[in-house]
C-alpha cells in the first residue's frame, strides 16, 4: 500500500499509473484473462441485441411472433435456437437478456458499492455512536435474504419495474462492502498522512473524499465486481419465480417460461441457453473479481465475499 500513500501527495496521476499497472497484471493473470474474454463475448451479445428486430419484426424478443409458428420449435435456419411456446425467437431473447443482465448487474452493483463505500467511510471516520448505529444497521440488513425481501416488496407493492428491483438489490447488498471499507478506514486513520491533512486544516469532508476515498477505491472496485454476480443472480431468480419486470426479457424470465409452460423435459434447446448464459456471465465476473483480489492484496481475500 506504499504506492497509495504516495498517491496522496502527488494525487491523481499516480493512482492512475497504479491502475494501469494493475490492469496489465490483470490481463496477464490466467483467471482474469479468461474472465475478461468471456465478458467481452457477452458484451458483444448485449451490443448486438438490437439487430434481430431490425432484420424482421418476427425477431422482436418480446412481441415478435413468427406467423407460421404458434408453439415451440427446435433450432432451424430461420430460428437459430428455436422458438418459445408462442413462436418467439429464442436467440433474439438471449441477446436481449444479455443487455438486461449487464444493465441490472452493473447498475445494482455500482449503487450498492457507492452506498457501501459512503457508509463505510462515514462509520470508520466518524467512529463513536454513528459507527455503532451504522454497523448495527449493516448487521441487520446482512441477515436478510435479499431475494425474499424483494419478494415481500412484490407482495406489497405489486409488479416491480426493473429499476425498482435494481434499487432494492442495491439497498440490501451494501453492508458487506461497508464492513470491509470501514475496517480499511480504521487502519488508514492511524496513518500519518491523515493526521498531516488534519493539521494542515483540511475539513472532514475533504479528508474523507480526497484522502480516504482514493485509498479504498481499488477495494471498492473489487467488491463491485463481486456484487455484479450477486445482483445478476438475484434478478434472474426473481424473474424465474415470476416477479420480474414483464416489459423486459431477461434470462431468468426465459427459464420461467420453460418451466411454467411445462417444457422442461421436452425442449432442451430452450432450457439450456439461458441457464448457460446466466452461469457463464456470473462465472466471468466472479473470475475477474478473484483475479483482482489476488492482484490487489492477498490479505483482504475472502472477507464478506457473499
Amino acid at each position: 500500500m506504499k504506492n497509495t500513500e504516495i498517491a496522496m501527495t502527488r494525487n491523481r496521476p499516480y493512482w492512475r499509473q497504479a491502475l494501469d499497472e494493475n490492469w496489465r497484471r490483470l490481463r496477464r493473470n490466467p483467471t482474469g484473462r479468461s474472465g475478461l474474454i468471456l465478458l467481452l463475448i457477452f458484451a458483444l451479445m448485449a451490443a448486438s441485441s438490437f439487430i434481430p428486430p431490425l432484420i424482421s419484426p418476427i425477431y422482436n424478443p418480446m412481441h415478435g411472433v413468427d406467423p407460421h409458428i404458434s408453439h415451440t420449435t427446435g433450432p432451424s435456419l430461420r430460428h437459430w435456437l428455436g422458438t418459445d411456446f408462442i413462436g418467439r425467437d429464442i436467440f433474439s431473447q438471449l441477446l436481449a437478456g444479455a443487455r438486461v443482465a449487464f444493465m441490472v448487474g452493473i447498475t445494482a452493483a455500482f449503487m450498492s458499492v457507492v452506498l457501501g463505500v459512503a457508509i463505510g467511510i462515514l462509520a470508520g471516520y466518524a467512529g463513536g455512536w454513528a459507527d455503532t448505529v451504522l454497523m448495527r444497521l449493516a448487521d441487520m440488513i446482512m441477515v436478510m435474504p435479499t431475494l425474499l425481501v424483494v419478494l415481500m416488496a412484490a407482495a406489497l407493492f405489486g409488479q416491480l419495474s426493473i429499476w425498482t428491483i435494481v434499487a432494492m438489490i442495491a439497498l440490501f447488498r451494501w453492508p458487506g462492502v461497508s464492513r470491509v471499507i470501514r475496517a480499511r478506514i480504521l487502519s488508514l486513520k492511524q496513518r500519518p498522512f491523515i493526521e498531516a491533512a488534519r493539521i494542515a486544516g483540511a475539513s472532514h469532508l475533504r479528508i474523507m473524499t480526497r484522502h480516504l476515498l482514493p485509498n479504498v477505491l481499488p477495494l471498492a472496485l473489487l467488491y463491485m465486481t463481486f456484487r455484479v454476480t450477486s445482483a445478476i443472480i438475484i434478478e434472474a431468480a426473481l424473474a424465474f419465480l415470476g416477479f420480474g419486470d414483464p416489459t423486459t426479457v431477461s434470462w431468468g424470465m426465459m427459464l420461467q417460461w420453460v418451466w411454467k409452460t411445462g417444457h422442461m423435459f421436452q425442449a432442451p434447446y430452450w432450457l439450456l441457453p439461458p441457464g448457460i448464459c446466466i452461469s457463464l456471465l456470473t462465472l466471468s465476473f466472479y473470475m475477474l473479481a478473484r483475479a483482482m483480489d489476488e492482484i490487489l492484496d492477498p490479505r483482504l481475500r475472502r472477507r464478506g465475499e457473499s
Binding site: 454476480t229 443472480i233 434472474a236 431468480a237 424465474f240 431468468g252 427459464l255 420453460v258 418451466w259 422442461m264 432450457l271 439461458p274 441457464g275 446466466i278 452461469s279 456470473t282 462465472l283 466472479y286
Partner: peptide
C-alpha cells in the same frame, strides 16, 4: 456460480 434454478431443472 451455477444458476440454481437452472441446475435444479
Amino acid at each position: 456460480t451455477l444458476f440454481l434454478p437452472w441446475i435444479a431443472m
